[in-house]
Each structure stands twice: as structure tokens, then as C-alpha cells.
């Protein structure tokens, strides 16, 4: 049972306030949307939750079966897809997946990696260099990478970005499956993506 608790989070860059006093609590099965105008801080809030950016105020807590998860272990509980996160262009899709398996300590052989890649519809392109992928194919591979270690907290920043209708279906499937596994947070301007969520916060308000 995974729980995410966000308490009084604020972020400012110098004197410029991005947002303040953001608080919410999410439990297993929750799908949460962060919406707002461009520059309202949606991606920054996701990066704060992922532990990539320090908040100016407030704190993020994660619990597994009621036990707090130490800060240094949280990366094992988080999967993230974002436009700013890139994979290694000089490696193939399969090599990227094998690398992330090894570095995350996921026991995963070549066939398992191929199956995960197949799950996002990239089986035919698994052995192609990522630099040659289209932006939609890269987005699919990012989704595969984020799901590799079966994270209880899935952070999706504009998940449908660059995806065709089949890719959108893949995202919908992932969000639907994640309801049984943990928490999903979606940051997006797209109404369709925000509609996947049960709860939402608008950073523009």
C-alpha cells in the first residue's frame, strides 16, 4: 500500500514565486492531475515530487505499508516520463532498456526487455539506434523505461506528447493498470489527459 503526502510545497526562483502551499495526499489507485497555464509550475512540481528539484518550502513524504520511505531510497519507487527527460540516443532501444534494468537492479534478461518494448509497440524498432527514432517512438520508449521497475509512483508530464492514436491507447492502458499498482500523477494542459484523473489541482488559480 503506497501513499504520497505533499505538504505545503512552494517554489520560488529568486523573488519570483512560482507556486506556494500545495498540499495533497494520494493513496493506491489514485490518479491525480496537475493542470495550469504554461509556466505555472506543473513540470517543476512533478520534478519536486520526483526528488529532482528542491522545494523552497514544504515537504514530500512517501509511505509503503505505513512505513516512511527514506529520501535516498525513493528513486526506486518513482517512474517518470517528461519531455525534458531524454534517453541515450547513441544506444538502441533494447540497449537503453538493458542499461536501466542493470542500473536499477531489476533482474531482467534480453527477452524480458524485448517484451516490455513490445508492450509500448516498439518491437520492430528495438535494435535501432534511438537517435534515429521519431519523437513519438522516443516517447513510447520513455514510457517503457518508466515502467521497467514497476514503480508505485508514476509521474507523467504531458504523457501524450508526440503520440499517435495508438500511442495514446498505450498511455491509457498504462494509467489504467497503474490504478492497481500505485499512484499516478499527470501534468498536462490537454483536457483529455486531465480527464484520466479522479482529482486535480490547478496551479493557475
Amino acid at each position: 500500500m503506497f501513499t504520497l503526502k505533499v505538504s505545503g510545497i512552494g517554489k520560488h526562483y529568486g523573488d519570483a514565486l512560482l507556486f506556494k502551499d500545495i498540499s495533497f495526499r494520494l493513496n493506491l489507485g489514485d490518479v491525480f492531475a496537475i493542470v495550469g497555464w504554461n509556466g505555472s509550475g506543473k513540470s517543476t512540481l512533478l520534478r519536486i515530487i520526483a526528488g529532482l528539484v528542491r522545494p523552497s518550502a514544504g515537504r514530500i513524504e512517501m509511505f509503503c505499508n505505513g512505513e516512511p520511505i527514506p529520501k535516498e531510497s525513493r528513486r526506486q519507487f518513482v517512474g517518470m516520463v517528461a519531455p525534458a527527460l531524454s534517453l541515450y540516443d547513441e544506444l538502441t532501444g533494447l540497449e537503453n532498456m538493458e542499461f536501466f534494468c542493470r542500473v536499477r537492479g531489476v533482474a531482467c534478461n534480453r527477452n524480458n526487455c524485448l517484451e516490455i518494448i513490445d508492450g509500448v509497440g516498439l518491437a520492430e524498432h528495438a535494435t535501432k539506434i534511438c537517435g534515429d527514432y521519431s519523437s513519438g517512438m522516443k516517447q513510447r520508449l520513455k514510457l517503457a523505461q518508466a515502467l521497467l521497475h514497476k514503480p508505485p509512483l508514476l509521474l507523467l508530464d504531458e504523457p501524450g506528447c508526440n503520440l499517435d492514436s495508438k500511442g495514446i491507447k498505450v498511455v491509457e492502458g498504462i494509467i489504467s493498470k497503474q490504478r492497481q499498482l500505485g499512484v499516478t500523477i499527470i501534468a498536462s494542459n490537454e483536457k483529455r489527459e486531465a480527464d484520466y484523473a479522479d482529482k486535480a489541482i490547478n496551479l493557475s488559480e
Binding site: 520534478r47 520526483a50 527527460l85 531524454s86 541515450y88 536501466f100 542500473v103 536499477r104
Partner: peptide
């Protein structure tokens, strides 16, 4: 290459 964050997460 923009891969710093994904390495930090992994």
C-alpha cells in the same frame, strides 16, 4: 544530451 535527470532517477 538531457540525460542527467534520468540518470539521477536511476
Amino acid at each position: 544530451a538531457g540525460t542527467m535527470d534520468i540518470l539521477k532517477l536511476s
